[in-house]
């Protein structure tokens, strides 16, 4: 009943959501291996340092630098003969690949697991997290992604052995062209302790700079509502909500966000929620621990000028 963790790397670092997947998988099996698809064999070092991993299985090939999903899913499916569970942290990386692995294995994957009740029973969100379902799978092999906000992020301190799997690369009918990375000096949205999030109330891309200024002051990540993204104030990878990212920071400071249910779904588990808005009836305000009912520009200017 071994479990395989699909490792997602950010550069050479293991992603936070992968660390959540390890914590989750330890509820399923006490024998965890990790699978790394990479073009760089030296990436084994950060993975073998993960606590809780027995063996790191490396598939190393130049073709895996920006691996095609067609190739990655085939390679993963072939490794799964030896395992009962495949677990990855929820992200665009895993959501792209794992369902295709599921199809190749004739398995129905389980998305966004938030709680593990038993080896075949899990809790996952429906309807943007407004409904939580307890589901039981009858598949012999279980494929799942887990919410990074629902499990502790496991640390380092392990010394897993490293095994290189020689695999011939399946043919691919697609190719990588380029990656336009959102470069930010700020904390990463899904793992940040503090988030300053802006909505349509900001009114323009230029005004969104006030949010950035406040985020820098608080050493916070920047978030946005879908309305702010649709209005072009900021790019989609900052979107918090059902169709964006799910976050649960210590502090979520929402500025000019009315609070559509799709947005609330993405941040309702935040420890402290602060709402700055001039509309006392906005759904967002009911979620707040602290409300400042004020013109948001007055508030942002005062906050940005305040000497902490």
């Amino acid at each position: 009943m071994s479990a395989l963790i699909l490792i997602e790397l950010n550069g050479s670092d293991v992603s936070a959501n992968t660390r959540a997947a390890i914590t989750a998988a330890l509820n399923l099996s006490d024998s965890l291996d990790a699978l790394v698809l990479t073009n760089d064999a030296s990436n084994a070092s950060s993975v073998s340092a993960l606590a809780g991993i027995n063996t790191v299985k490396m598939i190393v090939d130049d073709a895996l630098e920006h691996a095609n999903v067609e190739v990655a899913s085939r390679l993963i499916a072939d490794v799964m003969n030896d395992y009962s569970f495949l677990v990855a942290g929820s992200s665009t990386f895993s959501k792209n690949i794992l369902p295709r692995v599921g199809a190749l294995l004739d398995v129905q994957p389980i998305s966004d697991v938030c709680e593990i009740k038993s080896k075949n029973t899990f809790v996952r969100p429906l309807y943007a997290g407004n409904v939580m379902a307890t589901v039981e799978t009858s598949d012999e092999t279980i494929v799942m992604t887990v919410r990074a906000t629902a499990f502790e992020h496991s640390g380092d301190g392990g010394s897993a052995s490293v095994e290189t799997i020689s695999a011939s690369m399946p043919s691919a009918n697609s190719e990588f062209i380029s990656l336009q990375e959102s470069v930010s000096e700020r904390p990463e949205l899904t793992t940040a302790e503090r988030i300053v999030s802006g909505g349509r109330g900001l009114g323009s891309k230029e005004n969104f700079a006030l949010i950035e200024q406040l985020a820098d002051k608080l050493d916070a990540a920047i978030g946005a509502s879908r309305a702010a993204v649709d209005a072009g104030f900021i790019s989609n990878d900052y979107q918090v909500g059902q169709t964006g990212k799910v976050v649960a920071p210590k502090l979520y400071l929402a500025v000019g966000i009315s609070g559509a249910i799709q947005h609330l779904a993405g941040m309702k588990d935040s420890q402290v929620i602060v709402v700055i808005n001039n509309d006392p009836d906005a759904p967002m305000s009911r979620m707040a621990d602290l409300v400042w009912q004020v013109d948001l520009f007055d508030a942002l200017n005062e906050l940005n000028a305040y000497q902490v």
Binding site: V107, Q108, I110, T121, P125, L126, G129, N130, V131, M132, A133, T134, V135, E136, T137, S138, D139, I261, L264, K268, I273, V275, P283, S285, R286, M287, A288, D289, L290, V291, W292, Q293, V294, A299, E302, L303, A305, Y306
Partner: peptide, 24 residues
Amino acid sequence: PRIKILSVEESGTKDRASKQVSSA
């Protein structure tokens, strides 16, 4: 079915005891 839904519950958003503030 490969997956059986055993139970569902509304988790919705819980209202919090909002405290008003009026300055930075």
